[in-house]
């Protein structure tokens, strides 16, 4: 019984997160300006990270959590670099 509940709730969670990623991707494509795209890229990264956490629950391995940490770090650094680029037109001043 609990097995069935867990299976379907993890599946539902993944579907909802995928939908959230689709919404972020819509804003990424629509824009209208560069800062909107960078913001939606950040939201995209965070939902992708949470999706990996649910994969970790499904499979029961630690591997996905490490991937989630790396995705989080990459998302942070890339959003910072893009924001810096929007501000001055250069990444390193």
């Amino acid at each position: 019984m609990s097995q069935i509940i867990l299976f379907w709730s993890v599946l539902a969670c993944e579907a909802i997160l995928a939908l959230a990623m689709a919404c972020a991707a819509y804003r990424l494509a629509r824009g209208p300006r560069a800062q909107d795209r960078v913001l939606s890229l950040d939201a995209f990264y965070v939902s992708g990270m949470l999706l990996l956490v649910t994969f970790g629950i499904r499979t029961g391995t630690t591997l996905y959590f490490e991937v989630a940490l790396i995705i989080g770090a990459l998302g942070f650094v890339s959003t910072l670099a893009l924001a810096k680029f929007l501000m001055r037109g250069e990444v390193i001043e």
Binding site: S2, Q3, S9, A12, I16, S47, L50
Partner: peptide, 30 residues
């Protein structure tokens, strides 16, 4: 199969609530 029912319900509620909040945020983006 010995996973207790209360824990399964708690995990399901937490997971779905968290993902719904994320979805609400992304709908807000749109």
């Amino acid at each position: 199969d010995q996973f207790p029912l209360w824990a399964a319900i708690a995990v399901s509620v937490l997971l779905v609530a968290g993902s719904l909040l994320m979805l609400a945020g992304c709908i807000g983006m749109v």
